[in-house]
Design a protein around this nucleic acid. Structure first.
Lengths: 200, 200
DNA sequence: ATGTGCATGTAACTTGTTACATGATTCA
DNA sequence: TGAATCATGTAACAAGTTACATGCACAT
């Protein structure tokens, strides 16, 4: 029995399943590009991880490749998902994921807020708020672009557009909650500190 | 110059700063225990990481230890944070953290929802909702316990209780958003699929 | 000249997980 | 008799990051 497919492996299989539905293939480079633009918001990997992972997937029978020779550009390997790869992916998809082991730097800093000067804490939370507002604006722009394409309503459940829309919705809700939390903390600090001194 | 302190190192320093404020010390074992109960919700590490990390912190002058010999129990090393450790921690705390490289399995599965049967997708999202409702209930219970201790109002900004309360608030908001997202998706699937067939 | 895009890889290192290793006491 | 608590470590492995390595075409 070959080694277990990892989350990165399944990430690649998801792209190759999308390619298969569109009747195309993808190179390692294509996958690396795809992991930059929209997907990077919920999954991240470098090309140095992707090439070895593709080799592992192929050894496990999940994908195959054909070599395409090119002039003026380096040759490339175009990968496609196998039937077994698709079956394996489907079985993994419907399995509810566990809570991932938490490792959140901002929570850690929040947990040590009492060590900071109130003014420093305020600056930290305001900066976090600003950054998440920016990210929220990015997501809103993507939504507008998506809604434009689909006429403002949800695409059918079996379409890739549906998956994209609900994943985006997670991001939208997430950023809103994050901003809400920052506001809650900022207001708490101001309220509690307003008696003592003058807080900007 | 010694090696840079890592996020795990700062996590340990945060506990040791708390100990210092209370005039006590902590062993590697104590730190491992502390990382189990409340802190595990936002930071996670095993003892096999903690012992070497304490050695690194000591080599960097961030902590010191004294050996305590015990009968009937194994001897232990009690660590405390140094002045330099506290300074280094403070400097790190006020630095706004970057967006961590995203790696979220549930988002990945959501991004491939169109590959599942609608019924399977419904089950996946309902199960996620159920788990996050459970976690939310846990957090609500902790809040009630905390509010009981502090008489329902926020503790002062410079107290460790304040940090605990705002970190808990992040969890409360997070779980509520997560459940909201699950509901949004569940309702979308039901609405879109109700025409075609009978969806439970 | 310099940087970007296309295209594929390897090597060294860091971080984190799982398992190995020991050994006394207390509780069910 | 067996599991849990206290207490500290190491080793093997997996996952992820950074840097090394090559090389042509095209735009600035």
């Amino acid at each position: 029995m070959s080694t277990q497919t990892t989350a990165l492996g399944y990430t690649i299989l998801i792209l190759l399943a999308r390619c298969r539905a569109m009747g195309c293939e993808a190179s390692g480079y294509d996958i690396a590009q795809w992991l930059k633009k929209p997907v990077s918001y919920f999954w991240h990997a470098r090309h140095s991880q992707i090439y070895p992972e593709l080799a592992k997937l192929e050894a496990g029978g999940m994908v195959t490749h054909r070599l395409v020779e090119q002039q003026e550009r380096p040759d490339k390997k175009l990968y496609s998902i196998t039937d077994e790869g698709l079956r394996t992916l489907l079985a993994w998809l419907v399995e509810p994921p566990d809570f991932p082991p938490a490792r959140d730097e901002m929570s850690l800093k929040a947990y040590a807020t009492h060590l900071m000067e109130p003014q420093q804490a305020l600056e930290l939370f305001r900066e976090q708020k600003r950054r998440h507002q920016e990210r929220l604006a990015t997501y809103e722009a993507i939504r507008e672009e998506m809604d434009g394409r689909t006429g403002g309503k949800l695409p059918p459940v079996h379409s890739a557009d549906f998956s994209e829309r609900i994943t985006l919705q997670k991001g939208l809700f997430y950023e809103r909650y994050y901003i809400e939390w920052c506001d809650w903390v900022i207001e708490a600090i101001i309220r509690l500190e307003s008696r003592n001194g003058d807080l900007e």
